[in-house]
Design a binder for these strands. Structure first.
Length: 942
RNA sequence: GGGCUCGUAGAUCAGUGGUAGAUCACCCCCCUGGCACGGGGGAGGCCGCGGGUUCAAAUCCCGCCGAGUCCA
């Protein structure tokens, strides 16, 4: 096993007189100029020494420090690069947020597939680390939002066989120069370079690894210098700390990270990092929340923070343990200290969270319950809770705007708008939750028991109500709550993860030897016929896979389905039903075999392909139109093209209403009618990104140095699909529906070309048929339908009234159809009324009100008076009974009904005073009713 | 993408196989000089939609639509 010790023996260290030492506290190896040094310098082995004693010659604000860094590296031959969005999922699909500057260049640049935008380069990249969320504010040094200043150099070995295979060649600089530049920057700020220690700390992550150095100054880790140079390899020569083996790569990359906030903090020497980086907002928040401290109190807070800073408090949990110690040291009561410090901690967290939100929303992340949108929502809600708790009464959108303004954003109005919308949504959620908890609390308070844990878990998991909020609300209603220690564990256990990763289909070895198929559909997008040579044929379960030297058939990809068509050789014509591409080799799935080596003529199913092209270009047009109508935050969140219809999912924070659909449709068709040409061009990806930004990648990020750019009107996208030549070829675009596929994601389904016409015709047919059925003009359909519906409701009510009148009349007039028997003191009326259940019930009620027992049977409605009956049968749908018993009469209606119903092959029941039942054998109805007197007698005797 | 919860009167919600309810809001009347309150009466429901099970479904099962929420 190698611990990479050799990797750290730098010439630079040698020349500068560094020595390698082992820390007496933690055992880490480090490099220092100070021969007497015993510890590595990093907490907990040593403490911060810059608090109240800044480590640089001058104090810097965030902006000044960023500029100092970038200009230093510019002066040393680095090109300054504009920061990337914090939404890393715009250019890669393995992560959601940008957490380090190197994220900007993964995976394609680091692997050598794509050249970096400059080499070497320097950047200050905004980042968000959600995992630190609990520590923000309390530890004094954690922030969720930060900028990682960096200098990167991308190197590729030249001593390899095929050096040109990588997008960059040769060495820009490596370890020695990296450390030298780092020292140089320290020096430029007037730091005492004697005090710097370099700790050996190999880095491993995401399948890559390499030696790395932590740069410690004044007790603080100010930079990490990573030398990414290895990749995971079971045969590898190095075994690293994650237990895996690694071997050297052909590319090797300098990946550095300098925390802008740390550097600013060290330059100012404030007790916490927050005070150094957000002085204005913290002053505002303190003032607004009415936090005024006496000089004594200020001193206590200051000392406590300084001590905490020195104590290597890495987690909020550790702080609780440390607080006793701190209080003792300063000589105050722990409770008093907490009362002083906690509001400040909230305020620090608010400032940090507002910056996080400004980053997220400024980069046009739309709050939702998926992906980055969910993260934005979580941060926003947490911030809102903190703001309310600490008693800040400024609207949240104003607080976020303070950060957006500081960052110089141009879309501040949009950011405020989104924050307001979200705050309102949260308010509604809280209100719903409050009512729910109040009911629950009252119930459990009555029972004198605490709210049980499963209820708590459900309140959080299904309704988004935090346990501590439940505690507060429950307390108001006198109910207790026990929040178990492992609460969030119990929540997690509700989410039974059904493992079952999708096993990737085994790559077929035999394809590996075949050359990449020439893609004729790019040379001539309008072409439909071609000639080719059959390179190979593979038998499959349901047909054959044919590989040609070149093809016009478009393989499935980018949401565009594959082409269909035929391949014809001298001997046979075969149908192509599917086309797939793998490693550049295109496979045509056919129903019959073709001879290897034969010449074939390929013909596309032209109608299908035309529709697919129309749909694909239309997709670009629709998303462009949606963006113009709904706002710049609109991005594609998925798409599927089809022959008859296509759909795109877009990120948007509200439902798309009918009027907006009309506007989108109109604008889309204006672009169609303008008949602008659809241009295809292959650009170097860096040029394309520089010119159009990451919005190019609406449909995903293509690999490679050159990317295909499709421009439709003002819309520019990287796209591998086939398109019509001019927008007019689309013919027409019809938006058919919108649907909310997730909160914050709207799906637009539309049709293009002939399918658009057909879709419209189908809708019209439905309208015409309706008009015909109502016997009115189409324009009168809405009014007529409304009138009919109202009248139908009126009639229902009238029928009910009449049924009641009829029932009363029946009850009053003893008519001949009824059999009356005496059951004890009470008269029972047994009668057959062929009517609906409603009518039977009404009659029974009327009889009961007259003090009589009602035993009513029905063989189904004699005539369908109400028009509401939905049964299609012809009166043979069985028998029903209703039995009603007046108060104080010892007859169980349920029992009677049960016995009657059993005679018609069914069952029944109900409360003792009013029961219903029935069965399928209507033929037995009269016999059953004839037996009713005996049944009544038997029941009363029992 | 997955899990969970919910959809009943204008609003908020009860009702978990057997006659659709409460509170507020609304309309009318009484009380009052008038208002608030109080009292009495009334109107207002395709129980989200579509299937299924059952003698019987707001209620149970399946699908769809709509909303909420937790997680990746």
């Amino acid at each position: 096993m190698s611990d990479l010790e050799e990797e750290y023996r730098l010439e630079f260290f040698d020349q500068e007189g560094f020595v390698r030492r082992e820390c007496v506290e933690c055992g880490a190896h480090f490099w220092t100029r100070d021969e007497d040094r015993e510890t590595c310098g990093e907490p907990p082995c040593e403490t911060y020494t810059f608090i109240d004693d800044p480590g640089f010659a001058e104090e810097y604000t965030l902006e000044e420090m960023r500029e100092a860094f970038l200009s230093y590296f510019e002066e040393h031959d680095h090109e300054r690069i504009e920061p990337y969005p914090v939404a890393a999922n715009r250019w890669r699909d393995d992560v959601l947020l940008t957490q380090a500057s190197i994220y900007d260049f993964q995976p394609l640049v680091t692997s050598g597939e794509t050249p970096p935008p400059a080499n070497p380069l320097t950047i200050s990249q905004p980042c968000i680390r959600m995992q630190d969320i609990d520590n923000v504010g309390t530890t004094g040094r954690h922030t969720m939002a930060f900028e990682m200043m960096a200098h990167h150099a991308f190197n590729a070995r030249e001593d390899i066989e095929d050096a040109e295979q990588y997008a960059y060649e040769g060495e820009v600089y490596w370890k020695d120069r990296t450390v030298e530049l780092c020292e140089g920057f320290f020096e430029s700020l007037g730091a005492d370079v004697e005090g710097i220690t370099y700790i050996e700390d190999p880095w491993v992550g995401g399948g890559n690894a390499g030696p790395a150095i932590e740069v410690i100054y004044e007790g603080a880790e100010l930079a990490t210098l990573v030398f990414m140079s290895m990749e995971q390899d079971p045969e590898g020569e190095y075994e690293l700390k994650d237990g895996n083996r690694y071997s050297k790569m052909d590319t090797y990359v300098v990946d550095t990270g300098y925390g802008l906030e740390r550097w600013t903090w060290v330059s100012q020497g404030t007790p916490t990092v927050y005070e150094a980086i957000y002085p204005d907002q913290i002053a505002f928040l303190k003032d607004n929340a009415g936090i005024e401290l006496t000089e004594d109190e200020q001193r206590i807070v200051h000392d406590a923070a300084a001590l905490a800073g020195n104590m290597d408090i890495d987690e909020a949990e550790d702080l609780e343990a440390a607080r006793d110690e701190i209080a003792a040291e300063i000589g105050v009561d722990v409770a008093d200290l907490e009362a002083l410090v906690e509001p400040l901690e909230s305020i620090y967290a608010i400032a940090d969270h507002c910056r996080t939100l400004a980053y997220m929303l400024g980069d046009e992340i739309v709050p939702s319950n998926v992906g980055t949108g969910y993260l934005a929502r979580m941060v926003l809600r947490r911030t809102k809770r903190l703001v309310d708790e600490v008693g800040v009464d400024a609207p949240l959108d104003e607080l976020v705007d303070m950060q957006a303004e500081r960052l110089g954003y141009e879309n501040r109005d949009h950011v405020r708008d989104v924050v307001r919308t979200e705050v309102e949504k949260y308010r509604e959620t809280l209100e719903r939750g409050r009512r729910r908890v109040e009911d629950m609390a009252a119930e459990h308070a009555d029972a004198g028991e605490p709210i049980p844990t499963p209820e708590l878990v459900e309140l959080y998991d299904s309704h988004g109500i935090q346990p501590d909020m439940v505690e507060d609300i429950a307390a108001e209603h006198g109910a207790d709550v026990d929040v178990p220690e492992d609460f969030y564990g119990q929540v997690a256990s509700r989410h039974d993860e059904d493992a079952g990763g999708i096993t990737a289909a085994d790559a077929d070895e035999r394809f590996a030897d075949l050359p990449a198929t020439e893609q004729l559909y790019y040379d001539d997008q309008q072409g439909t016929e071609f000639e080719a040579v059959v390179l190979d044929v593979f038998e499959r379960e349901d047909g054959y896979d044919v590989v040609l030297d070149q093809t016009m058939f478009y393989p499935e990809g980018g949401g565009q389905p594959p082409d269909h068509g035929t391949l014809t050789s001298d001997d046979a014509t075969v149908e192509v039903t599917d086309v797939q591409i793998e490693d550049g080799v295109i496979r045509h799935r056919t129903d019959e075999e073709l001879d290897k080596g034969s010449m074939v003529r390929g013909k596309l199913d032209v109608d299908r392909r035309r529709q697919l092209m129309r749909n694909h270009t239309a997709t670009h047009v629709v998303i462009h139109a949606a963006r113009r109508i709904l706002g710049d935050h609109v991005r594609q969140a998925g798409a599927q093209k089809g022959v008859d219809s296509s759909r795109i999912d877009v990120a948007h924070y509200d439902r798309i209403d009918r009027e907006q659909v009309r506007q989108i449709e109109r604008l889309a068709n204006e672009i169609v009618m303008a008949n602008v040409s659809v241009s295809q061009e292959w650009l170097h990806r860096n040029d394309a990104e520089a010119e159009y930004g990451f919005d190019l990648y609406q449909g995903g990020v293509p690999p490679g140095e050159q990317i295909r750019i499709i421009q439709v009107d003002a819309d520019v996208q990287a796209c591998g699909g086939t398109h019509v030549a001019r927008t007019g070829d689309i013919g027409a675009i019809k938006v058919r529906s919108t649907e909310r596929v997730q909160d914050g994601v709207e799906r637009l389904t539309f049709s293009a070309g002939t399918a658009a016409i057909e879709a419209t015709q189908r809708t019209e047919d439905a309208l015409y048929d309706t008009a015909a059925a109502l016997d009115v003009d189409v324009w009168d359909v809405p009014d007529t339908a409304t009138r009919f519906f109202d009248e139908w409701k009126e009639r229902g009510k009238r029928i009910e009234e009449l049924q009641e009148e009829l029932a009363e009349a029946r009850a009053a007039g003893g008519d001949d159809d009824a059999t009356e028997v005496e059951v004890g003191e009470t008269t029972a009326v047994v009668r057959r009324i062929d009517a609906e259940m409603d009518e039977l019930r009404a009659t029974a009620n009327a009889l009961v009100e007259d003090g009589q027992i009602a035993v009513l049977g029905s063989g189904g409605p004699a005539s369908d008076v109400s028009g509401t009956s939905s049964d299609s049968s012809d009166g043979t749908n069985g028998a029903q009974f209703v039995v009603g018993v007046p108060e104080g009469c010892a007859v169980n209606a349920g029992e009677v009904v049960s016995q009657l119903a059993s005679r018609v092959g069914g069952g029944g029941g109900g409360p003792p005073d009013f029961a219903q039942g029935g069965g399928p054998d209507a033929d037995q109805l009269d016999d059953a009713l004839a037996d009713a007197p005996e049944i009544l007698q038997a029941v009363v005797d029992a």
